[in-house]
Design a protein around this nucleic acid. Structure first.
Lengths: 140, 140
DNA sequence: CGAATAATCATCCTTTCGGGTGACGGAATT
DNA sequence: AATTCCGTCACCCGAAAGGATGATTATTCG
């Protein structure tokens, strides 16, 4: 999001510079205001649509094994980084004990994370969680 | 989101200041041009985002690779029909109890099948069994 | 600063799994 | 007929997983 805004600002600034440059370079001092307005309207409408597409839940049509993490869904379900890590390890077939050791946390912590995961994914077993997470493209 | 809008506004304000600075720097004749540019940018960006949101309705078309059951591996591991059925239901995230009900057999039977499965697949947990079975293309 | 969130850990209790063993009838094979 | 395999079921026990709740700390946000 911050990157988007940054790109946006830079694009805006660059556009102004280009316009100014052209204006002075070619002494086109009498470029009509309507022309500017039209140009800007088109440009920023396009940019706006692009941003809109960024913001919306854009489902990527995947053909084959390429995995694109569905961050929108992740955010929608409110799954945190740590929970996502646990989810990945669950999908790998690790037990809670093994996950705890791998993440250097206690067994209880892993159980808490997984419980929260089940709530957010609306499932009650880890196998279901894995299945649903794959459907939602939260994990490869 | 509110924060985003706030940052956005601040960025825009900063941009206007920059533009004002440039205005004096390059002795721009039209004083209010940049202001109009900024205004137009905001307006048409909003319009673009609105249009983008309007236009994009999510449609998920997943074209996955068709599943070909690996019967050779099935035979090699000596997995019976019934065991394979249980394996599929395990992969669907069902509990042993649910599998038993679905197959009209007792819980103990399902447990026997799953235990035999784990031996044949050389795993110790159902999540691992699902993982391995997918790798070996025993299930979709 | 106060509120909210994320991450951590704990305790208690119930359910589910997994492992081991044994048994029995039916079908196919030898 | 004897053997082997499959499917079925049972009992036992310990380990793992799941559910509920509360507490602490750190960071972030308003």
């Amino acid at each position: 999001m911050k990157r988007t805004i940054l790109i946006y600002g830079i694009a805006l600034a660059a556009l102004v510079f280009i316009l100014k440059y052209l204006e002075y370079r070619f002494f086109v001092r009498d470029v009509s205001l309507e022309f500017y307005i039209g140009l800007l309207a088109v440009f920023f409408t396009g940019l706006g649509i692009w941003t809109g597409l960024r913001l919306t839940r854009t489902q990527v049509i995947t053909i084959g094994p390429e995995f694109a993490l569905n961050e929108i869904e992740l955010g929608r379900l409110g799954i945190s980084k740590r929970e996502h890590e646990v989810l990945e390890l669950i999908a790998k077939g690790l037990s809670n004990r093994e996950i705890a050791d791998k993440l250097f946390v206690s067994l209880n912590t892993v159980k808490t994370h997984s419980s929260n995961l089940f709530l957010k994914l609306e499932v009650s077993r880890r196998t279901q969680a894995v299945q649903k997470a794959k459907e939602l493209r939260l994990i490869p």
